[in-house]
Design a protein around this nucleic acid. Structure first.
Length: 311
DNA sequence: AACTTTTACAACCGCATCATT
DNA sequence: AAATGATGCGGTTGTAAAAGT
């Protein structure tokens, strides 16, 4: 197909927009609507190409754009959607009101992606990158923490199949490290949830390809993702399984429901992770706090496991 | 204080897709 | 059906501000 260049390369301004240009574009669109983007610049008195105008409007001037830092819930949603949709930024943006695809893409590349990498998670597949992990230090630190509450066993691995409990486990694990007293408080508050899960959540009949006995398949363990961090679940018994998250499948999960993303309790913040906490924090402290979740990358060591084959 | 490096984000570019003729 | 034009999308770049030395 033939194609004319989107705009003359000569005589048209490039680079950052000035307030005057913004005003011209905004005023024009508010009166006339965007109409034809190619002809808009001339009509609006702008020396820009239509593409540049469209982008400026869509990514910056549009009145319904939400500006400011991404909330914890938004970040969670981005990670979850990205695990399913990949780099379909416009599709992700469509589910985050007020956020543009460009903004989400930038935020992913400058914040989320880096953090996942630091924590040994492949930002493309959302699977753990064992080559990046210092397994020996993780293993030794885990072995030295036996006196701490064993949250995975407390909840029961079945519970991890419940997204609500997944979030709870996530919170508990971070508290386990940082604040055992609050942890106990959380445990009491959520006792009923755990009980309900144990009673009502019989292990669903997962297909063979989605379940792994931990004692034999450490190398195949996938992270249970929550809040963008990897989280291994494993116990000492052959009966305990971890669920392979849908985001490591080769394509979109046919059973995945976007509605569930919106309504799932996983998006309901616990007090610890409330959005207001993050929004009102300075940038560095927010990152620090989120960084603390890196402690989640822990798992228990099955009896009789030969570490040497993983070193 | 000056310089360098890093970070964050706006903007650009080229290709893909859709709509129209 | 093919050609053309408009728009959308995702990767990449440019640059100002912040952080570090």
């Amino acid at each position: 197909m033939g194609r004319t260049p989107c705009c003359d390369k000569t005589g048209l301004k490039k680079g950052p927009w000035t307030p005057e240009e913004d005003l011209k574009l905004t005023n024009y669109i508010q009166i006339h609507g965007p109409g034809n983007w190619r002809t808009l610049p001339k009509k609006a008195g702008l020396e820009r190409c239509g593409k540049s105008c469209r982008l400026r409007w869509a990514n910056y001037l549009r009145p319904d754009i939400k500006r400011g830092r991404f909330s914890f819930e938004e970040e969670e949603t981005i990670i979850q959607l990205h695990s399913v949709l990949g780099n379909k930024w416009s599709a992700i943006a469509a589910r985050l009101p007020g956020r543009t695809d460009n903004e989400i893409k930038n935020y992913w590349n400058t914040h989320i992606r880096k953090r996942l990498l630091r924590n040994g998670i492949d930002p493309v597949t959302h699977a753990p990158r064992l080559d990046f992990l210092d397994l020996s230090s993780i293993l030794s630190s885990t072995l030295c923490n036996q006196s701490l509450v064993n949250v995975s066993n407390l909840l029961g691995a079945q519970a991890l199949l419940n997204p609500q409990l997944l979030r709870l486990a996530n919170t508990l694990l971070s508290l386990k490290q940082d604040n055992p007293e609050i942890l106990l408080q959380h445990l009491q508050q959520n006792q009923q949830l755990c009980n309900d899960s144990q009673e009502n959540l019989a292990p669903p009949p997962l297909p063979p390809s989605t379940t792994f006995p931990c004692t034999t398949m450490l190398s195949q363990m996938e992270p249970v993702l929550s809040s963008g961090e990897g989280f291994f679940s494993c116990s000492n018994t052959q009966e305990t399984f971890v669920s392979q998250p849908n985001h490591v499948q080769s394509g979109p999960n046919p059973n995945f429901s976007f509605d569930s993303l919106r309504s799932t309790p996983m998006s309901s913040p616990t007090p610890l992770n409330s959005s207001s906490t993050f929004i009102n924090s300075s940038s560095s402290s927010v990152d620090d706090e989120r960084e603390s979740f890196s402690s989640l990358l822990k798992f228990e060591i099955p009896d009789g496991l030969d570490f040497s084959e993983f070193m």
